[in-house]
């Protein structure tokens, strides 16, 4: 949603309401509470509010607003990806305006590092709904701004990994399609592997890159190398997000290696962090079924179906949303 230059004074109600919403967001970090006054707004209301914000030249609030709109996009993307894209475009536009306002090179450099994280999160918002085409342009921009960021390389690898999953050689209608899917999947998994290896070269302790490299090697059939990388990733994993991702993917690898006990413990660690994660429930229930415990599989499924909220697991899912990046940005907004 581009905002035209040459900004006229805006009606104070829209500008004011938007400023208040940003302030609530900064104060509470609660996007659902902050967005309440704006929930019936039309795109032109947002246009006018953003024009007013840009006219204020309040750089700190513009950056906070960019994070606010990114958080809105994260919440919206499962319901409407076009609406999510609109909010990401608002944020992206605001960050470009902020950069233009900086004259000093050091400030621009600091801002570019910030923008790179913002853009990698923006791309990952679309990865979280398995839309690598929409994600890729943001990741390319992030990469241009921060070519030596392990974080950005990792999300870049995730774009390729998610794209690869769209070429399923076991889901085909013609033999030529199966061959094409096989070929395209191998190409993309190779690119993902190279991106994760680059991230690890830049930061050998980067847990998510180690885990995702392990996963890509696993689905490429390189089980020994996969286990090596996964073990390192699990050892480096800190905090709920990293430990959840480690539990999920290590579980998958161990299950394929027929270590059902190890896989069960790994999935259960992930489930302890996000009890209503659909992916982990399915993974664990499938493991139980294959291990001859169909009653346990049914109980897991019934408990999941009876749980009333999908919100917690949505942010975690398969780890494709850059949650650490989003959490870092939220912290920046508060500061």
């Amino acid at each position: 949603m581009a905002v035209a230059p040459g900004i006229a004074a805006q009606p104070p109600d829209v500008v004011e309401a938007h400023r208040n919403a940003v302030d609530i967001y900064v104060r509470t970090a609660d996007v659902t509470a902050a967005i309440v006054p704006l929930q019936h707004w039309k795109p032109q209301d947002f246009d006018r509010a953003i024009e007013g914000l840009i006219a204020s030249k309040d750089v700190a609030r513009m950056r906070a607003a960019a994070i606010f709109h990114l958080d809105i996009a994260t919440a919206l993307v499962g319901l409407s990806s076009p609406a999510a894209k609109q909010h990401i475009e608002i944020g992206s536009d605001l960050l470009s305006r902020v950069r233009d306002s900086y004259k000093e090179a050091t400030k621009r450099k600091e801002h570019d590092a910030f923008r790179a994280i913002w853009l990698s999160v923006a791309g990952s918002v679309f990865l979280s709904i398995r839309d690598p085409m929409r994600a890729a342009p943001y990741l390319r921009q992030a990469h241009d701004l921060a070519p030596d960021s392990a974080h950005v390389w990792t999300v870049y690898g995730m774009v390729e990994e998610v794209d690869a999953s769209g070429y399923n050689p076991n889901d085909w209608t013609t033999l030529s399609q199966r061959e094409r899917n096989q070929r395209e999947q191998i190409i993309r998994l190779g690119r993902a592997e190279r991106a994760y290896r680059e991230a690890i070269r830049l930061d050998s302790h980067y847990a998510i890159a180690l885990i995702r490299l392990g996963h890509v090697l696993h689905i490429s059939g390189k089980l020994r190398e996969a286990r090596e990388s996964m073990d390192r990733g699990v050892a480096e994993a800190k905090g709920p997000y990293q430990e959840y991702v480690a539990g999920l993917y290590m579980g998958g690898l161990l299950q394929d290696q027929k270590d059902f006990g190890g896989a069960r413990r790994s999935y259960e660690r992930a489930l302890a962090i996000v009890p209503n994660s659909q992916l982990v429930v399915v993974a664990l229930a499938h493991l139980e079924l294959m291990a001859g415990r169909p009653d346990r599989a049914q109980t897991l499924a019934r408990d999941f179906a009876a749980s009333d909220t999908q919100t917690t697991w949505w942010a975690y899912k398969d780890g494709s949303l850059d949650l650490p990046g989003l959490q870092w940005l939220r912290q920046q907004a508060r500061q």
């Binding site: 398995r130 769209g166 076991n170 889901d171 992916l279 993974a283 398969d318």
Partner: peptide, 8 residues
């Protein structure tokens, strides 16, 4: 399928 954990 675009988002499942389970393979075919």
């Amino acid at each position: 399928d675009t988002a499942s954990w389970l393979r075919n």
